[in-house]
Design a protein around this nucleic acid. Structure first.
Lengths: 169, 169
DNA sequence: GAGAGATTTCGCACATAATCCGGTTTTTTA
DNA sequence: TAAAAAACCGGATTATGTGCGAAATCTCTC
């Protein structure tokens, strides 16, 4: 029914790579870059969306200009590691607007969460008013980010396999 | 010259919040949602882009479908903490396609980098062939992500201050 | 508090892009 | 090799983005 990555040809992958960087590129221009006419190009894009390769399109803001320039990673350990407790924590954390990412990491049922706030005062408020109010938090360890060296929302799309034998595709 | 966040009114902030979630929303529809006609709405969007509040527009892909489903955080300590060594490391890391984020964290000149790869084999290859080849890496500590609880590219845009008294500016 | 100026808004006209449709070419399959 | 399926293209239609002048709103000054 739905294609796998292996089923995508060179053009499909090109499209993914381009749209990852320029989500609002007009279809005419996209078609030109991948050497297609607009119609089949749009058809491919729509299909990639339908099949779930493309999740959605977003605008990226300048964090500093919207007062969210400070990034802090917080490592969290829970007291209770029962499934229900974990799920409760998941729910709670997901609802916090400062939390950009939350991951459960291997080795001792810890969490690593990434937050964006304006400044240290914002961090203190988050820790005291938001994170502390979540039940079951045993301890936290804070990593304050001094410099953002790289931030990239795109992922590498591998080239297609040269197609084993016989025909091509 | 360029506006600050404080200078944005309710509508501007609404626009930012909406476009963060739906970067390809047609301007007519956006205008309808913020109760404006298309013309001034587009004018505002263009201005927000020009002033740098909106950095760019991107398509978000499904990491699993493009064989980048495994997230690993790696904590890195360098042997040399001279500015030139740090900059060299920054350059090197930024060029690696698996690296989605790289942050310098306070307290001992460590780095925290986030990578996306297909599986554990991909991780081993990255560590052995890519990260190890960067000079000056003293030690690394790995956090393997079991579950992605939350991932959000958007940031909270605060509501405007009610404008103190008398005039505003 | 009245008025000049600036800013923002709207509605219409125009340009550009997205979408639809039919026909052709290419690829796949039997 | 022929038939079927899929992909592609070009042009017509529709929708969307963009430019411009006029009206409305707001700001500031006197």
């Amino acid at each position: 029914m739905s294609r796998q990555l292996e089923d995508l040809d060179r053009i499909d992958r090109q499209i993914l790579r381009i749209l990852q960087r320029a989500g609002r590129l007009p279809n005419v221009e996209l078609a030109r870059r991948v050497n297609l006419s607009p119609t089949p190009c749009l058809e491919r894009v729509k299909r990639l969306e339908r099949e779930g390769f493309i999740r959605d399109y977003v605008a990226l803001l300048d964090p500093i200009k919207v007062h969210a320039g400070l990034v802090v990673y917080i490592q969290v350990t829970l007291t209770d590691t029962a499934t229900s407790a974990l799920e409760a924590f998941n729910e709670h954390v997901s609802s916090l607007e400062e939390v950009q990412e939350c991951h459960m990491v291997a080795g001792g049922f810890d969490y690593l969460i990434k937050i964006r706030i304006k400044d240290m005062l914002g961090y203190r408020r988050f820790l005291g008013e938001k994170l502390a109010s979540i039940p079951g938090v045993r301890e936290t360890h804070t990593y304050v980010v001094i410099q953002e060296v790289k931030t990239d929302t795109s992922v590498a799309v591998p080239d297609p396999e040269p197609a084993a034998k016989g025909g091509k595709r």
